[in-house]
Nucleic acid binder design. Structure first.
Lengths: 239, 239
DNA sequence: TGCCATTTGTTCGTATGTATC
DNA sequence: TGATACATACGAACAAATGGC
């Protein structure tokens, strides 16, 4: 079953063998063999089967759940246009319920792009708020907000959920205005994919935005939003 | 440096530490520290730093080459979306060399979103042109252009390479103006990842745009651009 | 050319942590 | 609570690619 003298890596041989095995008696959603079973079946180390399974998870063929097992991934036909939420639409749609939850709040030294964007010195303190955005109960986006400490007031301590924009307007007299956005696609890290309840093989759409105070024109917020790539589509309408 | 009693996994602590380190003294293209060095620096096992680096590779922050080392990933190229702005112009301004190659040309019945966007009946004929865009010799984007047959003239037969926008202006008297763009992130299919010379585990950034003829205001083109997610970043400037 | 040091890649072994049922 | 299964982390050895001499 395994050719230890083949130039093809053992984990790839196993990945291929598993893939063939799946087509022969397994259906989407079925629980697949445990790592222990696979270890015995192929006569290799557990790490090696883990590496093989990892390969198939990356390809969306298997899924894993800690403490439960490995199972055959559901087919994702979900890419039809209709299943995409449009940011502008989804929020405006009647019946779409948008929630925002505060996940974390901490003071950190501004590093790299955060310092650069907010025009601070490397190491200047900023307040970081991480929030989770849900639409109709489903996690859609994670947002890390960065505020220069200079604009942070005690009012921030009271924020717990709901629109951060409205909160700033009401309690801090800050009307934020977006002056630029940068959009890119990348893969999620473990924490982000967990928090968004998505497969780590699905991409994120990252939107980095810089906001100024509409009145004073001062830089007040830099934020990094990670949208679930499979659920969100940005819509840009030209004038 | 490493807190072994933190609930945050060691490999994530290291990934974060490396990310901060990178912003402080490393530039795109620089060779980063070897696994051995990192192992000593953080006082952990080599597997653990490998896991951390893996995390950053997934996020397009580091790149690895077998037998050579780890280096800081190149910054994504930025591309501003503005109405009247063409990709070739946007990039050319930065002094990069842009090539466009025709991959395929065919007449097909408009289906689904193509018909919908161009306001055609399902099954109406459209001309599809697939082009590959390279910047400094590297494949960056695949574009599928769809034109209603009504606007297609014999001139189209002469198109082989170069800016399609300029071609339309010169030979078909069409000045295209973008009226909307939709941006999303998704994984590439086998053909796209092959044509773009990228890993099938890296995401694409898809930009769907709808263009009208500036003079007549008629819908003239719908296009779907697949950018390599690891090489491109859209930039949106407000106002 | 070929050899060597360096660096990443693969595989084995072992132990312990943590989630699920 | 216990059994099972995946997750993390340590240690060791060898393979394979790279670049310099």
């Amino acid at each position: 079953m395994i050719d230890r003298y083949s130039p093809e890596k053992i984990y790839m041989q196993i990945a291929n063998a598993i893939e063939a095995d799946l087509k022969d008696g397994f259906e989407a959603g079925d629980v697949y063999l445990s790592e222990k079973t696979l270890t015995e079946k192929f006569g290799v180390n557990r790490h090696t089967v883990r590496r093989a399974v990892e390969e198939l998870v990356k390809q969306n063929i298997l899924e894993k759940r800690h403490g439960f097992g490995t199972f055959v991934a559901e087919k994702r036909l979900a890419y039809s246009i209709k299943s995409h939420h449009r940011l502008s639409q989804a929020i405006a749609e009647k019946g779409s319920e948008v929630e925002t939850h505060l996940l974390e709040k901490k003071r950190i030294p501004a590093l790299g792009s955060v310092a650069e964007k907010l025009q601070l010195k490397n190491g200047d303190e900023v307040l970081q708020l991480d929030t989770l955005r849900k639409i109709n109960g489903k996690p859609i986006a994670l947002i890390s907000h960065f505020f220069p400490i200079a604009i942070v007031t005690d009012a921030f301590d009271r924020y717990e959920s709901g629109s951060l924009g409205s909160f700033l307007a009401k309690h801090c007299d800050i009307q934020a205005k977006r002056i630029s956005s940068q959009v890119s696609a990348s893969m999620p890290n473990a924490q982000d994919s967990f928090r968004l309840g998505m497969s780590s093989t699905q991409p994120l759409m990252k939107v980095k935005t810089l906001n100024v105070n509409l009145k004073t024109n001062q830089l007040v917020e830099y934020s990094v939003t990670r949208f679930r790539g499979d659920m969100m589509q940005l819509e840009l309408l030209m004038k």
